[in-house]
Design a protein around this nucleic acid. Structure first.
Lengths: 221, 221
DNA sequence: ACCTGAACACCGTTCAAGT
DNA sequence: ACCTGAACACCGTTCAAGT
């Protein structure tokens, strides 16, 4: 029935690992990581769930691949500014990437197989510290402390409602559900967060505390 | 058939919310949070899954309740030592509790409804900072920065193999799977972690960096 | 009041079968 | 080489029925 020269009818692009990972990221961004099942992702790509196994080594591998795409968004400064400025910019870029893709931070902490982009990111961060003459022991602590703050802040910020409406709702409900007299400081804390503040900047605040402390130890070590 | 006076045959204790939560914690500690399903937990208690709904408001409520039990293990210093020592001891106790129950840290960041123990913990931490005359804005930042570090370090430490055998295996496998010449600093980092170091102390290191910085700002604010 | 059985709409993954 | 259908052993939750 088709003519010898197949007219370019809207024929599906062939499935590839890249297309599967892309679709996974799009789906997770749009509906949360909970929506990313093999069956649902297959449907999104116009294919049965089982076809995905030809391009991805099971669900864990799919999630690893999706995470590495997000890590690829992190900008690693490679110029010759001082270590502090480099660490600061890299951490802020990483934090922003995790905030753009709310599902990625928990994969960051649980993934055991670093992908290529994660390796690039880690190597860059470690090189920058070594170039600043951090001693091996201090270098390790510096790297991990920055990582801890990065992922800790992202997860804490993502775990609690961002938009003011939701915050108001949750805050009021908590305030109603417990004896304000028993926990007056918690009550004050919630009220503080119900008022408009410059919520942003919390990440940089802690980051600078850490970087200042590291610079001090670097000098004295 | 049973005599009027029921002999105390091994009759099942009646199900209560406490017993359900206890069983959940025991199961999660033993086999991981992935093993905690309504069906499996029911089986563990000698009951059908649906019975649990009489004592718990669905799975989310079950997990909230389990988390709050772990938060209850945290020791909140209430004496009149200085704020720094109090914050330090509370954070170390909280961190230890999260490390004892590896499944709890991710619930900590994702739970939206603080339980009674979480309220007690937060109120104690906030009160201690207020008593040290932290300004409202700085108090909020101090509290959240300590929390970020706490949860970030726990999740990062739990996400990577603790015992040396597993570490060796994963480390070697990563070292084999990437071009060492391309990422020499990452290679050095992995090798560093393959040698025996005093792995402990990483949490306190970052914590002290943060507390030192906060004390400095408190004085100058 | 508490527990159960059956049912609904899902999961990840394996495997033999198709093209 | 890639995709599919059927199957297996699971999920959380609802609901009518039992005691």
């Amino acid at each position: 029935m088709p003519t010898p020269k197949d007219p370019p009818k809207a024929r599906r692009a062939p499935l590839t690992r890249d297309r599967v990972l892309d679709a996974g990221v799009v789906l997770a961004d749009a509906e949360g990581i909970g929506a990313v099942s093999m069956r649902r992702l297959g449907r999104e790509l116009g294919v049965e769930a089982m076809s995905l196994y030809n391009h991805v080594d099971g669900k864990a591998d799919l999630l690893d691949g999706m995470l590495d795409r997000i890590v690829g968004e992190i900008e690693c400064p490679e110029d010759d500014t001082d270590w502090r400025e480099q660490a600061r910019r890299r951490a802020i870029s990483a934090h922003a990437a995790l905030m753009r893709h709310p599902w990625a931070a928990s994969l960051w902490t649980s993934s055991i197989n670093p992908g290529p982009q994660r390796m690039r990111y880690m190597d860059s961060a470690l090189r920058s510290l070594r170039a600043a003459d951090f001693t091996p022991g201090l270098l390790d602590r510096a790297f991990h402390t920055i990582e801890d703050h990065l992922v800790g802040h992202a997860l804490q910020a993502l775990g609690f409602p961002l938009d003011p409406d939701e915050m108001a709702e949750v805050g009021e409900s908590v305030l109603r559900s417990f004896p304000v007299d028993t926990y007056p400081d918690l009550a004050a804390h919630i009220r503080y967060h119900l008022e408009p503040h410059q919520e942003a900047g919390g990440f940089e605040f802690g980051l600078d505390l850490i970087l200042d402390g590291l610079e001090r130890l670097r000098g004295s070590g």
